[in-house]
Design a protein around this nucleic acid. Structure first.
Length: 265
DNA sequence: TAAAATGTTGGGTA
DNA sequence: ATACCCAACATTTT
C-alpha cells in the first residue's frame, strides 16, 4: 500500500496507542523481513525498550525507542496493525512485537518485500532520501532547479526517492495529471510556472490522500477511501476530469502509468 | 495462463 | 557519472 499518505495514516493511528508502552518481546516469523541486526541481537536489544515516539520519514515508519530506532518499510504489501496480544499470528504476519498492556503490533506482509531495521543510526538508512514533499524546503524554486539539473523523464524522476521522498506510482500519476504534465516529459524542459504547478499538485494530492486516510487497493491496507477519488490511476478508458479525453495507460520506467494524452503535455 | 500489482535494489549496458 | 533496462524479491488476483 505504502506511499506517503498511507504510511502517515498508519503512523497517526499507531502513535496514541503505543507511545509510552514497553516492548516485552518480539516474534520474528520470517527471517528475511529483518534487515538488521541479526535475529538474536534484535530480540535481545528490542526487549525492554520504551516506545518514545512514532513518526514517518518518506515511506518509512519510525519508532523512536529509548535507545534505538525501529524503522519499518512496508514496500508493496505491508501493513501494521494492533491486536490483542493473546491472539495467535494471522496469515502473513512476519513480525509481532508484544508490548505492555496486553497488546501487540503485527507487521503483516503478504509479498514479504517489507523490511525492518533496528539501529542506533537511522541516518544510515534514511540519509540518502530527498526532501519531504510536504516540508517548507520543497519549494517551486527548488523543484525547478532540481528538474533542470537532470535530463530524465518526469515520472521516473519523481519516483526516485533520492530526488523526492514519499511519492509512489499512484500519487505520481495523480500529481502529473493535476499539473497537466506528460509522464515522459524531459525534466529539464519544465518551465518555472509548470514547476510551481507540479509542486502544488504534489502537495495537494498528498494532503488529499492523508485527509482521506490513504488509498485502499485490493486486499492490501483496508481503511482509506482515496481510491474513490483517483483522477487517472487505474482509470484507463474513463474520461479525464480536466478535458474529457479518454485516459490512457502505458508503461514508463517499468511502471504502469495512467495519463491524459490530451491535456498532459 | 499470462500479466499485473501502492517498492526498492543490484547488475549490466551505453 | 548519468540514464535506462532487466531481474530479483514473493504472493495473489484478474
Amino acid at each position: 500500500m505504502p506511499e506517503l499518505p498511507e504510511v502517515e495514516t498508519i503512523a497517526r493511528k499507531l502513535k496514541p496507542e503505543l507511545v509510552n508502552r514497553t516492548i516485552l518481546s518480539a516474534d520474528l516469523r520470517w527471517t528475511r523481513t529483518l534487515a538488521t541486526p541479526s535475529p538474536g541481537k534484535f530480540k535481545e536489544q528490542i526487549q525492554g525498550q520504551r516506545i518514545v515516539d512514532i513518526g514517518r520519514r518518506a515511506k518509512y515508519l519510525i519508532f523512536r525507542l529509548s535507545s534505538y530506532s525501529l524503522l519499518i518499510h512496508l514496500r508493496m504489501s505491508g501493513d501494521l496493525y494492533i491486536k490483542d496480544g493473546t491472539l495467535s499470528a494471522a496469515k502473513h504476519d512476519r513480525l509481532i512485537i508484544n508490548v505492555s498492556g496486553g497488546r501487540s503490533v503485527a507487521f503483516n506482509d503478504t509479498r514479504k518485500f517489507g523490511r525492518v531495521w533496528l539501529t542506533s543510526n537511522p541516518a544510515d538508512i534514511l540519509g540518502k532520501l530527498g526532501p519531504e514533499p510536504l516540508d517548507n524546503e520543497f519549494t517551486s524554486q527548488w523543484l525547478y532547479a532540481a528538474l533542470h539539473k537532470r535530463h530524465r523523464q518526469l515520472k521516473p524522476l519523481l519516483l526516485d526517492q533520492t530526488f523526492i521522498a514519499g511519492l509512489g506510482n499512484i500519487y505520481t500519476d495523480e500529481a502529473l495529471n493535476i499539473a497537466k504534465l506528460h509522464p515522459q516529459r524531459d525534466s529539464s524542459s519544465v518551465t518555472a510556472k509548470q514547476a510551481e504547478a507540479l509542486r502544488d499538485a504534489i502537495q495537494n494530492v498528498l494532503q488529499e490522500g492523508i485527509r482521506r486516510n490513504g488509498a485502499t487497493i485490493d486486499w492490501v491496507y483496508r481503511g482509506g477511501e482515496f481510491q474513490n477519488y483517483f483522477r487517472v490511476y487505474d482509470r484507463e478508458g474513463y474520461p479525464c476530469q480536466n478535458c474529457g479525453a479518454i485516459i490512457k495507460r502505458m508503461v514508463v520506467g517499468q511502471r504502469g502509468t495512467h495519463y491524459c494524452p490530451n491535456c498532459q503535455r
